[in-house]
Design a protein around this nucleic acid. Structure first.
Lengths: 194, 194
DNA sequence: CGAAAATTTGACATGACTCAACTGGAGTGG
DNA sequence: CCACTCCAGTTGAGTCATGTCAAATTTTCG
């Protein structure tokens, strides 16, 4: 299993001894998913959080009208899970589906609690990761309030240039909270403006 | 200083020994603000996170057009800070202003780091608090996408019944991401429907 | 009581949605 | 290699949710 990306990621936040690394590695699982497979389904309990080694996933929920709303995309070096379901071990609100063949490293809920006992530094790692995640979640709320769909699309393209080319436009529209038709109109308008 | 609300809050997440409690209390500051005073101003560094004992605050930013956007309200038993500024100790994006006379207990950035060293359990407390905060931030994003302003207003009233009556309507409109005029129209429509 | 602030109301403008029709690739099978 | 289908993407007409602006009304508070 290729653990280098994970260890490299962790080293940006905390330093682990060799022993701690080996404890850590003993408690995680490597897993490969095919394109289209679900890592998590709405209604199931989210039993693990996944760190992406390669590939791409979308996190979405299906509303009462059957409409799909994409909450986030995840790529290499990102985490994905339904945090609400994970921390309370109750039914998930979201689905996580692979848009490409995807390799992940998974922390299960039980192991995670053990890990925090054995390597308290990890608690710090997760605290810091959560802080960053919360900041960017808040920024997204702010952007959704004060920017038009066009501005949000431009920011998205800047922020996730690789994702923009890898996935269908209707998913990007869903992520931005607009219809595919309207995204299409935004794009043709942007071309005219140049 | 009235520390009971804080200790009571903490006890929902972790158990502290008497000694830990006294270390904790030695590192925090009690502070009273008047109505209208700022706990934090856009551009300053957020040096502390504040736990509210009483009163009410709004967190907002002023955009390029001078428009005010309210990100959140905080009341008794909630935390408030500009997390992004706090964790990186850089200029804050947001203002935090007291809408009523407000009592807080403050953790300064430096003390917080010391505290985590001396009482590692606190790291767990903050991790758990952040998890919850992230979940509710994500839920808010989802709601903003899939619900109309009217539905969001009804949820707000349900979720913060006390706030709804304490503060001017134009601030609620700002929090909901709509204009005060449109909020007014929603309310008159709700009355008609009854 | 009077002034300032907050709220409401109405006319009109616009961003974004819906629905339906059309275009253009990417398979697939004969 | 062509005809066919299927799916993503585009385009246009009409509509709805929400915004803007200005005026009228109500509330707050010195």
């Amino acid at each position: 299993m290729n653990t280098a990306p994970l260890l490299n990621y962790i080293s940006k936040y905390i330093d682990l001894t060799e022993e701690e690394v080996s404890i850590l590695l003993s408690k995680i699982k490597y897993r490969k998913y095919l394109k289209g497979q679900y890592i998590l389904q709405q209604g199931d309990v989210c039993k693990c959080s996944s760190f992406l080694i390669s590939g791409c996933t979308k996190t979405f929920y299906v509303d009462a009208e059957g409409q799909e709303h994409i909450i986030m995309f995840s790529i290499k070096d990102w985490w994905t899970s339904d945090i609400g379901s994970f921390i309370t071990q109750t039914a998930a609100d979201y689905n996580i589906q692979c848009l490409e063949p995807t390799e992940v490293i998974q922390f299960s809920y039980d192991n995670q609690e053990e890990l925090f006992q054995e390597i308290p530094k990890l608690e710090r790692l997760f605290r810091k990761m959560l802080e960053k995640a919360l900041v960017s979640s808040q920024k997204r709320i702010v952007r959704n309030f004060s920017l038009t769909a066009k501005e949000r699309y431009l920011i998205f393209k800047e922020q996730y240039p690789t994702i923009d080319q890898r996935i269908p436009q209707y998913m990007i529209a869903s992520f931005l909270g607009i219809t595919k038709e309207f995204l299409s109109k935004i794009k043709s308008q942007l071309i005219l403006e140049q």
